[in-house]
């Protein structure tokens, strides 16, 4: 099923989706675009390259309250947080980011661990993937081609959208997408020419080239194991690294968190908050010992986790090449270049 709408009238579609549930879509902020819950349909803005923060926050928010408690009171008086179970629409996700959800599912909805918060939200959400605009230049930080992802891959989305001049074509990819699309009366039916355009666009996406290297999973996993003790290499790679948390926070596949009990005047909240291996205190033990005190150790962990340990454990690289870590790194540390250098080390 293929539908369409004028991009100008995107707010009408947004308004309908808001009636049906929670709409999360890119909005323009001072420094760029980010996904946000939409209260005003006019705010939805598709004129973005990619968002600053990845869309992982839609399923795994930066801060998630679990339960409110009172010190010294019985457990029965604790109030668990109520999940918003309204259907949700995640609108305008780039193909590389769509792919990240599948990798994150491993951690939150498989491997013997099921995180109810993640799963509920995933199930309640319809994903509107959105092809990169093939007429816009590729950002030099991106390298999703290396991970086998292309600019207009519909796979993983429920509904996939491509831009056709001033129109937006929406194609149902899954049953869930099809059901929703058929209910959206604000949309017009696509023509045969639109169908053709869509198919061609998806194919043309393969020619929209990001940085690319041939990457053999086994080879990189092994290589990173081999150079674990090559301190010279890692010191060199991390000479500029500030050990801040930007790269991990903006990353769609970083999933570390901390459980905090924040208590004040006998009342508290137990919550989950993002954490990151780039922080000094990430590995700080209660004894005071910290096995990773050096910046090079932390950067080594980040790269090796994504490109080695993750392959060994789950069979896939934990990176989709969206380029965010490189783009937002204040000192331009580039994970692609490090992987390239590691292969040569």
């Amino acid at each position: 099923m293929l539908k369409k709408t004028a991009i100008e009238k995107i707010s009408q579609l947004a308004a309908v989706l808001m009636e049906k549930g929670t709409l999360l879509a890119p909005v323009k902020e001072v420094s760029g675009h980010n996904f946000a819950e939409i209260n005003d349909p006019q705010k939805v803005d598709l004129s973005f390259y990619n968002t600053i923060m990845s869309p992982k926050g839609a399923f795994f928010p930066h801060k998630e309250d679990f339960v409110k408690y009172k010190i010294g009171k019985p457990l029965s008086e604790a109030e668990p947080a109520v999940l918003n179970l309204k259907p949700a629409f995640l609108f305008g996700v780039r193909p590389c980011d769509v792919k990240s959800f599948e990798i994150m599912d491993i951690h939150f909805d498989a491997a013997g661990i099921i995180d109810p918060y993640w799963r509920f939200r995933r199930e309640a959400t319809t994903i509107f993937g959105y092809a990169y605009d093939l007429n816009q230049p590729v950002d030099s930080a991106d390298f999703y081609n290396t991970l086998g992802i292309y600019a207009a891959d519909p796979e993983g989305s429920d509904i996939f959208m491509v831009k056709k001049d001033k129109e937006l074509l929406l194609k149902a990819i899954t049953k869930k997408g099809e059901n929703l699309l058929s209910e959206l009366a604000v949309l017009k039916d696509g023509s045969a020419a639109d169908e053709k355009y869509f198919t061609e666009y998806v194919n043309k996406g393969k020619e929209y080239k990001t940085r690319f290297m041939t990457l053999d999973q086994e080879a990189i996993a092994k290589k990173l194991e081999d150079i674990f003790d090559n301190t010279d290499f890692w010191t060199k790679m991390s000479a500029a690294c500030l050990s801040c948390g930007i790269c991990t926070f903006v990353c769609p596949t970083c999933y570390c968190f901390d459980i905090c009990d924040d208590t004040l005047f006998g009342k508290g909240t137990r919550r989950r908050v993002w954490d990151a291996c780039m922080f000094t205190d990430f590995t700080l033990e209660a004894s005071g010992h910290n096995p990773r005190t050096q910046v090079y150790q932390r950067l080594r962990q980040k790269i090796s986790h994504k490109y080695s340990y993750h392959i060994r454990k789950y069979g896939v690289i934990s990176c989709v090449g969206c380029g965010r870590c490189t783009r937002y790194c204040p000192v331009n540390i580039d994970i692609y270049s490090i992987v390239e250098a590691a292969l040569k080390a």
Binding site: C244, I246, F249, C260, T280
Partner: peptide, 29 residues
Amino acid sequence: CYACRKACPMCYCDPCFIDQSKPKWADKA
């Protein structure tokens, strides 16, 4: 993300007050 303190040439404390847990000056969220 604490990039501000990490980029700052004058922020070199170990530990930084915000990473302290006793006393804990602020929530992590």
